[in-house]
Design a protein around this nucleic acid. Structure first.
Lengths: 160, 160
DNA sequence: TATGAACTGTTATGCTATAACAAAATCGGC
DNA sequence: GCCGATTTTGTTATAGCATAACAGTTCATA
């Protein structure tokens, strides 16, 4: 399985292991250097399905006993994003692991306001629809940010 | 006319005047207090169709000779957003005037990476499509952020 | 004109992100 | 294995974005 299972009970240790294994393979294939730091940051990002802030990652790194400053984290994140291993959640200034890094894609997210989890979805036609609408305005689209906030399955009010 | 004409030659003085007049009317109707500060900030936001940062607004306020600190601006923006007169552009940490404040709505934007202009669009079906997809994941959506980046009509490469 | 509510001023601070330069590790060719 | 070029990391400093907390003022209305 490669799909994230956020907002659903699951074996999260498996998520982490699988994400790291995929990262190893992909970077190997691409000749990209998944260094110790970068791999560690990726592992930390994957501690949960909720996006993590850069400074929180920094704290965790320091708990490892490493000397680390903000650029350490931001550079690792920059690399991970360039490899599609991590996505940035704009509305939260935070970062989350990508469950499907094999093929480059723009992520679209459902963000739970209760538990904080992020679920990556593929809205497919939506991207194209927006492009078409943009074209009507003479606009050429190169990138899209689509983030929806609300309540995930587990966080629905009891009377649902 | 109430539609913004960003990315298109137009009489911008009219945009500003019209936006302010609309704001006056709406606040009047709603019993909301469009104070001097708030009105001035709205006017500054409308100086162009490109989203403006809060600290840039702050500088402009100070040029007026006013004593002003960050909260002055952020509080005005908070009010203006609560009235739907201004929208926040998440991917830029900046703010832009809403050309259609009469009816509450979520804005969706095309952001030009060359000239910086923001064009508000109504993607209609897209919102519903995302809601439907979210529902498939057991997710209830309460708010959406949709921002597309690219090149506006005027900023297309010459060979187009 | 007294009173409570709303708005503004002011100071301080916290969070997010990057610039700039030095040092170290790594890779490829010899 | 060694060397030069390239990439990555360390370190310090600073820029940019946002809000907490509390005091003072203005406003609407009784």
């Amino acid at each position: 399985m490669t799909k994230a299972a956020a907002a659903t009970p699951h074996d999260h240790a498996h998520c982490i292991a699988s994400a790291l294994a995929q990262a190893d393979t992909l970077c190997e294939q691409r000749g990209a250097r998944l260094t110790k730091n970068r791999r560690r940051v990726l592992e930390l990002v994957w501690q949960s399905h909720a996006p993590v802030g850069a400074y929180e990652l920094l704290e965790r790194l320091r708990e490892d006993g490493l000397s680390a400053a903000p650029p350490t984290v931001y550079r690792a994140l920059e690399f991970l994003m360039s490899q599609g291993l991590v996505h940035r959640i704009e509305t939260r200034n935070a970062f989350v692991g990508c469950p499907q890094p094999q093929h480059e894609h723009e992520a679209q997210y459902l963000l739970c306001e209760a538990c904080g989890d992020a679920v990556e979805i593929d809205v497919g036609g939506v991207r194209r629809r927006i492009e078409a609408l943009a074209a009507q305005h003479g606009f050429t689209v190169t990138a899209q940010t689509i983030e929806a906030r609300g309540l995930c399955r587990r966080c629905q009010p009891a009377d649902a």
